[in-house]
Design a binder for these strands. Structure first.
Lengths: 215, 215
DNA sequence: CGATCGATGTAAACACTGATTACACCCTGG
DNA sequence: CCAGGGTGTAATCAGTGTTTACATCGATCG
């Protein structure tokens, strides 16, 4: 399984990673459900059967890609906001929450196919938890806890957390859906975040004033 | 196209409706993307080619099913709440909004595959608008207008409307997603609705008190 | 009434897909 | 040096979406 990295020893070498890379690239645009084994094998210059040395199934590839999607999302979170740092002020806590939301919505709209895959039936491979990365839920929990610590929201219960997630998640989905009216991403998200915070009892201190940005 | 209903005149008759009926039934459970023409034709006791007399494509079937999904959702709305009626009081306006939200979430969770299809790339057939039914957006707009008319929310702008939709939509999606923690549907939705209303400036009059139910 | 014609269904074929199998290769460890 | 296992190949199988040529039925019209 785990190979000595970049030695490229056998005929082709590190096929598994290449498969995931290509499938992931295809998923960015959409319609990853239409992924074809034979297309994949042709792109990789390899016979169709070869892939079955590394994946049991086509479904196994989709699961692995979904997994990679969650990793990618975690990277985006980390890029928008270091996980170890803490908010220095109330305004900063708001900005951090907002940065998180924007990262989420942006990821969904720039990787819609992948994002749908992540929340579809291949969402999680229960065999392969990876506790080394904080999950979306943990990021969100931390952001809410900070807001609560600075007295900006009334509570930071799991229910509040769930609500905040669903609000941002719903925006992300409808933003990219052809069945809904569309709007510019980040401006829309900012307004959305303000309303979400108000739902959580935000005291309106910074509601209409400028808020310090992260990056 | 439109046939004299139940005469069943030709070899098989009304194949088109039967195709949609079967595909729709399959969509209830999920994975309608995996719909197979040949499976369908076998279920209908018909040769595979016959279906192509009524649908250009497999995709055309999916589009038609998505369309039928929106019709079905509209029916659920109408069942939960007559469109012509008006809220008699503030509490009633709240109850009506809540009934709408519950209908939406329940529909999504009981017809998840269909619901995903509706918001996927086959979401809308732009060739076939049907102005005779109020859309989700219109239902929602009416509910918010009533809340505003009774002085319960500050504004009822399109932005508010969009926010309310995304909030309920996100709940619907995460509720049925394997990648998220799950919870009981209606109780969860009630709490969600309360928070959503608060985001819109709800004055908390009925927030924790019992609210009259519809039906 | 009977011929005609368009709408509907059938059967066979085509290219393609996911998956399995038997076989060949070549690196590695003893 | 040579066995063995991980890796890739070629051929093959059943199943798919779609097209084509052909058959059949029902209504329409002279």
């Amino acid at each position: 399984m785990t190979q000595s990295a970049d030695t490229k020893p056998l005929h082709h070498g590190r096929l598994r990673e290449e498969v995931i890379r290509h499938a992931l690239a295809e998923a960015r645009l959409g319609a990853i459900e239409g992924l074809s084994m034979r297309d994949l094998s042709r792109q990789l210059g390899v016979s169709p059967g070869a892939i079955y040395r590394h994946f049991e199934d086509r479904d196994a590839i989709l699961r692995a890609v979904a997994q990679a999607g969650f990793d990618l999302l975690a990277e985006r979170f980390a890029a928008a906001l270091p996980f170890d740092s803490t908010a220095t002020s109330g305004a900063d806590a708001v900005a951090r929450f907002e940065a998180l939301a924007i990262a989420y919505v942006t990821f969904a709209s720039t990787h819609y196919g992948l994002w749908r895959l992540m929340f579809g039936p291949y969402g999680r491979d229960p065999e392969a938890p990876r506790p080394e990365r904080p999950t979306t839920y943990q990021w969100l929990g931390k952001a809410l806890a900070e807001l609560h610590a600075h007295g900006l929201i009334e509570t930071a219960t799991p229910e509040d957390q769930y609500f905040a997630w669903t609000a941002v998640h719903g925006l992300s989905d409808l933003q990219a859906s052809p069945a809904a009216p569309s709007a510019p991403v980040t401006a829309n998200t900012r307004r959305h975040v303000r309303l979400t915070l108000r739902a959580l009892g935000y005291r309106a201190k910074y509601l209409d004033s400028a808020v310090p940005r992260h990056d």
